[in-house]
Computed example of a mutant assay.
Amino acid sequence: MAGSARGFRKRIQWCWRVEVPPPVPTGVVHHQLMLDGTYFNGWCVLIAYNGKYVVDWQWCDREKKIAWQVLLERIPAPAVAIIDGGTGLRAALKETWPESKVQRCYFHVFQNIRRELTFQPRLPAGKELAALTRVLMKVSTQDEAIAWLREYAAWEAKWDEFLKHRTKAKTGQERPSSVSRNSHWWYTHQRLRRARNVYRRLIQEHCLFTWLDTDLQPDTGEKIHRTTSPLEGGPNKAIKELLRLHRGLPEEHARTAVDWLLESLTEHPRQPWSLVKPEHLNPAQRTKNASMESDESQAPETYSNHFSWEDGNGIQTGWAGRNQP
């Protein structure tokens, strides 16, 4: 393009004033929706994705219950929600979409277990649970799911007494960070217990093999996703790439750019020029008009065109009305 880069930025500066309005609710009931949030510059954007298009999004500071509720209330409840397991999202789903089935993302389950067991567990119980986790990633049928549940139940029964081992507090003994100073004992194998609790909760809440439920399979023949990878590798990756390529954007511009990106990923993106108004092109005129309207609305009554005694519009008395001698 002709001219300098600075000149080009100056010519298009008005474009940053064009804001993207919230997505228009369509009322379409999606069979499955992936829900996840991505962070940047102290902000978090929550995204609802149907596997092909962005359905809606919501800005917040972190993934908390109230922020998720604001997003979920604008979207009809789907048959299945695929989530990463955040506590705020789980609480919002129970209140806003109580009838929707939940599928926990296998990738996040794997990460949660690996965080507790590490890459190379030392204890036999940890090695066996890590092996069960690797098998879980390969489950593809209901028969394999039933077999996995049996293997996991056998693991719990085998190591139940082992996981009840306690460590008594002693003078000068180092305590785990999760143990209070007033505790006289704690469970010895806390990481193993936390990993076990992850699976216990998933099994109790029936959100580990939802994707294999034949009654929930869509009529289109498309399978229910078991991970949020399409969302992670789609809109979330596009946001990270956008901000990487345009490093140094002011916070306001970064949010505007992400809004435009997500708008372009919806099923029916709006034409940008349809959102442009005259005041976007000429902000000085908009400021001038706003200032004039503000002055007129705040001006005292004596400055209007109404009759006022204080303006001197009446019979005058005093020195000015005397006759000269």
Rank of each mutant, 00 (worst) to 15 (best):
V20M: 13
D215M: 08
F119Y: 08
D213C: 03
L216Q: 03
E251M: 11
I239H: 11
D160K: 13
S297C: 02
P235A: 05
T96V: 14
D56Q: 03
Q32Y: 07
L231M: 14
K64Q: 12
C105L: 09
T38E: 08
D143N: 06
R200H: 03
D219T: 10
Q69Y: 09
A92F: 02
A48K: 03
E293T: 03
D219E: 07
T227Y: 06
A48Y: 02
E232Q: 02
A2E: 10
H31G: 02
P121G: 06
W211L: 01
R166H: 00
L242E: 11
L46I: 12
D84P: 06
T87L: 15
G321R: 10
A157L: 13
Q103M: 04
E116W: 06
F8Q: 01
Q190K: 11
L245T: 15
Y152N: 09
H246A: 13
Q204H: 04
P235I: 08
L243G: 06
W148R: 04
Y303N: 00
W211H: 06
H246I: 07
G3K: 01
F307S: 12
H165P: 01
V80R: 03
D84C: 08
T317I: 09
A290W: 05
L208M: 02
G221M: 02
E19H: 09
R196V: 01
P218T: 04
